[in-house]
């Protein structure tokens, strides 16, 4: 994006993310109202709005919990048999998923602007000393690295909004891959689903990690490659090397004690 293009676009600020959060909350309310939820739905929206205006760090998690509570109440009222119905590509679910992901993403981006985008570094402190938990001694507060509001671009906002439906569809695909009415060795379907999700995540992590490790090894420069080789050799022959070097160190001191040149 060139500077010329940036000047032509309208300025974007944190307010736009707040507006997106509000819009997502409204969509969540309507989607759940369409399911017939009212009281839990209202609580859900109130909690979401409270988290938004109070800038609560755990706001997105609270909203997820409230949506979960509302949905559990809905399925509890319908009865257990209806809970395992196939819900492939229901438009209400897709809209609800997109709205929840939109709220979560926008709220976390707001936290990067309001609080910090990088993990706090306890070595970087500035300002007058003050007591913080556990109140033992006064220390200057840790400097929080916030994202400046002026760096928000319209493209990131548009990209987020456009990608929401993709994540909702991805959830539908994953849901379709989960076994629904299958029983293996007497395990109920819900346990089987949990096992499949756990194994899917674990195997997926291993594969992705392996791919990235190979990629990293291919990109390594000569010094890094030397470090990897040296570390592998040390891991394999650690005991032998340790014995030899300790004997040499002892021998050096022994020679020095006897007055011989080392």
């Amino acid at each position: 994006m060139t500077e010329h293009q940036t000047q032509e676009l309208p300025p974007v600020a944190a307010f736009h993310y707040q507006a997106l959060c509000g819009l997502c909350l409204a969509v969540i309310f309507l989607a759940q109202l369409n399911q017939g939820l009212l009281i839990p739905n209202v609580f859900c929206i109130l909690i979401g709005a409270l988290c938004l205006f109070s800038r609560l760090t755990l706001g997105p998690v609270f909203l997820l919990v409230m949506v979960g509570v509302a949905q559990w109440a809905y399925y509890f009222s319908l009865g257990r048999g209806s809970a395992q119905r196939a819900r492939a590509l229901e438009i209400t679910d897709i809209i609800l998923c997109a709205a929840v992901v939109g709220f979560v993403a926008a709220h976390f981006r707001l936290q990067s602007i309001w609080q910090s985008v990088l993990p706090s570094d306890p070595r970087r402190r500035a300002g007058p000393p003050r007591r913080q938990f556990p109140w033992l001694r006064k220390q200057p507060p840790v400097v929080a690295q916030k994202r400046p509001q002026g760096q928000i671009t319209p493209f990131e906002l548009a990209g987020l909004v456009l990608s929401l439906s993709a994540w909702a569809v991805a959830a539908q695909i994953l849901w379709a891959l989960l076994p629904k009415q299958v029983e293996i060795i007497g395990l109920p379907p819900r346990v089987l689903q949990m096992i499949v999700v756990a194994w899917g995540l674990a195997v997926g992590f291993l594969i992705v990690r392996g791919v990235f490790s190979l990629w990293r090894f291919r990109q390594a420069d000569s010094a890094t490659a030397q470090l990897i080789l040296q570390d592998t050799l040390w891991k394999e022959t650690r005991g032998e090397q340790r014995r030899i070097q300790r004997w040499l160190a002892w021998w050096k001191w022994e020679k020095r004690e006897r007055g011989q040149p080392s």
């Binding site: 997820l64 979960g68 399925y75 992901v101 993403a105 994540w167 991805a170 959830a171 819900r190």
Partner: peptide, 23 residues
């Protein structure tokens, strides 16, 4: 939350968690 959703078999909430997880 995904584990809780799967344990309680609330399909819509599983979808919501899967969407957030995939994101």
């Amino acid at each position: 939350l995904l584990a809780a959703a799967l344990a309680t078999a609330t399909a819509t909430f599983v979808l919501v968690c899967l969407a957030a997880l995939s994101w």
